[in-house]
Simulated scan of single mutants.
Amino acid sequence: MAQATPSKHKQVIERYLEAFNEQDVDALPELVTEDVLVQGLIGADGDVNGIEEYGEWWTETLSGIPDAHIELEDYFESGEKVAARWTFTGTQENDLFDIPATNRSFEITGLAIFRMEDEKIAEKRYQQDDLGMLQQLGIVEEH
Rank of each mutant, 00 (worst) to 15 (best):
I99S: 09
E52M: 06
E53T: 11
L17D: 14
V12H: 07
P66T: 01
T59F: 02
N49P: 06
M1P: 15
A27V: 05
E107A: 15
E71N: 10
E56F: 02
D47H: 00
L37C: 09
I108T: 10
H69S: 12
D130I: 08
I113Q: 07
M1S: 15
W58C: 10
T109Q: 12
S63G: 15
S78W: 00
G64L: 04
S78R: 01
F97T: 04
Q3L: 14
W57G: 14
T5R: 05
M116L: 03
D45V: 01
V48S: 05
L134W: 05
A122W: 00
L137R: 01
A2F: 05
I13H: 11
D129N: 05
E77N: 08
T109G: 15
S105L: 06
L131G: 08
K8H: 12
S78D: 11
E34H: 02
T109W: 00
E18I: 06
L111Q: 04
E141S: 15
E119L: 03
E71C: 01
E34Y: 00
A101I: 01
G90H: 03
V25N: 07
V32E: 08
F20V: 12
V36G: 08
I65G: 04
E56S: 13
Y16T: 11
E18S: 15
Q39R: 06
K8Y: 09
G138K: 03
E93K: 08
E34N: 11
K10V: 11
A112R: 01
Q92P: 13
T5P: 10
G55E: 00
N49M: 11
F114P: 03
Q3T: 15
G64P: 06
T89A: 11
A4Y: 04
V36R: 01
L134R: 06
K120R: 13
P100V: 09
I51M: 14
K81N: 15
A84W: 10
D67R: 02
V48L: 04
I99R: 05
K124R: 06
G40V: 05
G110Y: 02
Q127A: 11
A83E: 10
A44S: 14
L134T: 09
G64F: 01
T91A: 12
D129T: 09
D118L: 08
L134F: 12
D118F: 10
L72N: 07
D45E: 11
N103G: 13
Q92R: 05
Q127K: 03
E53D: 14
A122E: 03
R15I: 06
T59M: 08
L31M: 09
W86R: 09
A122I: 05
